[in-house]
Design a binder for these strands. Structure first.
Lengths: 343, 343
DNA sequence: TGTTAGCACTCATCGAGAGAGAGTGCTAAC
DNA sequence: GTTAGCACTCTCTCTCGATGAGTGCTAACA
């Protein structure tokens, strides 16, 4: 059996109606609502075919039909009219995106909020992974007796500061000297790239500063290691899920929110390593908790380098055209903003 | 009508049973479960009295009774056997508390997690308020052409860094000079205390550095203003609420989580300005969303100064004795850890 | 051969009604 | 003052039938 034009029209009608109403739809209703020029009986026959093809299914005998995962997939790939945001919407997003761009964390949170508000779904934003960040420059600043502020500039431009312990009698000159050696030897390296020989050199050049070096290295290690763990997903609009009729069951809500809470696993949903826009429908998802959900995700870049991803999570029954348009435009806008910012 | 010993016993039985089962309890059940030496009929009479006194109520005619807010209050104030944690529990908390004490934020999050796990309820932790932090010291560090890193040490010891724009041709000496003036004039002041005259002085001493000063002041303002907003409540175990039978209604869950999301208002629940331990029962709470909830909160100190608060939020029907013991011990332990840490 | 009307059948949902169960309040006896 | 007994109330649960949306099949039609 093959898909013909009429089957496609009917499938599109079913998907669109179900997305809008969340109710199973029957042949008579289709005939009434959509002007296909054929009777309900004909539609009925076609629907039986569509069910055989696996594109629609019945929740129970003699209920209407709803799209299956495969049906949504076919819809997204072949039937959907791709939506383009109107200028008003685009301007709104651009205006909002450029609002708070000082702190990278702010950009993340704000993007997340924006996404969830625009889609009425749950947004996921994965911040730039710092994993690849390498050592740039190191400064020491006086703090308190026996303690100094260590300011680390990474090569990607991020700046962090931490307080470390030093000997009470450490002079400013000595600190300066240590910083300089680090800056000379380590620029451009990540900590795990630092070779034994290099450490050896540092130690031998600064034989008397063993304590300071050890503390510094400890802290550097913590900072550059943290990065991986720090790659946290920012969630927005989790409450929107509660408004979806598919989550009027408390049990589902519970499992859903449990996954939200330990958000490490959510990264998997975003395909951060698969460049461009991605649509994952229902069971295509690896996590069984989300077998009734779809994810629209896309990666964003800074200076041509893919560094993070954003996504929208919603019930399988979501307005794919709209959400895809939003996520797509959002990542473009984000890429632009971040690239401009860092120059 | 007066409370006598028998009435007290019966009220205690009602509260304890309801806390354990979440079911209204009737006179016969009390007679059976608790050995009060009187028949159900007698208990029935006493219960009628207790209802007149406002300590218990009926959800509907001929259901069992449940404690009213006043009933819980009387229970907490007069009837409850105060619980003391056993050494095992105390040791567990102390061990956990001293685990992660490097970053203040870590302490907060960890405390919150610990509290919610111990109580199976929702925890609220209010971090040390930075509101009173005043300007301590300022450093400039080279970053990129036209940009410098500004490191601000506040008087409470917190260190922050930000990147600001400067003229391309700004020399290190000039920056140094500006920093010195700021450090001389502003140490110990919060930004809103900075008087016009002081600004005037700064400007006149550094007449040629107007752009740099403006940018610096802008950033300082942002940082010291942020502090108030930054005083965010850390929530833990929000999901535990879903396990409470009183929240099996999705509507309630929705309003509850909505409040959780914009967590600004939650501060009110904690009474951070009222030193010591606090029990707020049901309608005693100012927020109508929490009229069926109770909050056990307590403040913690550093070096004898009250700087934050922790609390546990749960349904009115909670195990007050246990939760009070935990919150109390937790704040003591937190106070100890933080005081030790700062020395 | 594809389309349509008609009809019997299925199944969820809703509301009414009956029965069970828990608990009360009142009365009268102890 | 305490207790036993009893009528009464109210919720909860289960069942049952009616309703209605929708299907699949068959036979007639173009």
């Amino acid at each position: 059996m093959q898909m013909d034009e009429r089957k496609r029209k009917i499938l599109r009608a079913i998907v669109q109606d179900y997305i809008a109403t969340a109710e199973p739809i029957g042949s008579r209703t289709i005939a009434r609502k959509f002007d296909l020029g054929v009777s309900s009986a004909t539609i009925r026959n076609e629907m039986a075919d569509l069910e055989d093809l696996g594109f629609i299914e019945q929740p129970y005998t003699s209920a209407g039909r709803i799209p299956s995962d495969a049906g949504y997939r076919y819809f997204v790939d072949c039937l959907m009219d791709p939506k383009v945001l109107n200028t008003e919407e685009m301007e709104f997003i651009e205006r909002e995106s450029t609002k708070r761009i000082h702190e990278i964390q702010e950009v993340i949170t704000h993007t997340s909020k924006l996404l969830s508000e625009l889609t009425n779904l749950t947004s996921l934003v994965l911040g730039p992974h710092k994993a690849k960040s390498t050592f740039g420059k190191l400064h020491f600043l006086p703090y308190q007796p026996g303690q100094v502020i260590m300011v680390i500039v990474k090569e990607n431009g991020a700046v962090e500061n931490h307080i470390i312990e030093v000997g009470e009698n450490q002079t400013a000159e000595e600190l300066q000297q240590v910083a300089e050696v680090f800056n000379q030897k380590m620029r451009g390296y990540s900590l795990n790239q630092v070779k034994r020989s290099m450490l050896h050199e540092i130690y031998s050049e600064l034989s008397r500063q063993r304590l300071l070096i050890d503390n510094t290295l400890d802290m550097l290690r913590a900072i550059l290691d943290d990065s991986e763990e720090d790659e946290r997903i920012c969630l927005g609009g989790t409450l929107n899920m509660l408004n979806q009729p598919e989550f009027k069951d408390l049990g589902k809500v519970k499992t859903l929110f449990k996954v939200f809470e330990e958000n490490e696993s959510l990264k998997k949903l975003l395909h951060p390593h698969q460049e461009g826009l991605n649509v994952t429908i229902g069971g295509e998802n690896m996590m069984k908790e989300f077998k009734d959900c779809s994810v629209i995700s896309a990666t964003y870049k800074v200076n041509g380098l893919t560094i993070g991803a954003v996504g929208v999570l919603g019930p399988t029954r979501m307005d794919y055209a709209k959400v895809i348009a939003i996520v797509d435009f959002m990542t473009r806008s984000l890429t632009e903003v971040l690239t401009k910012r860092r120059r």
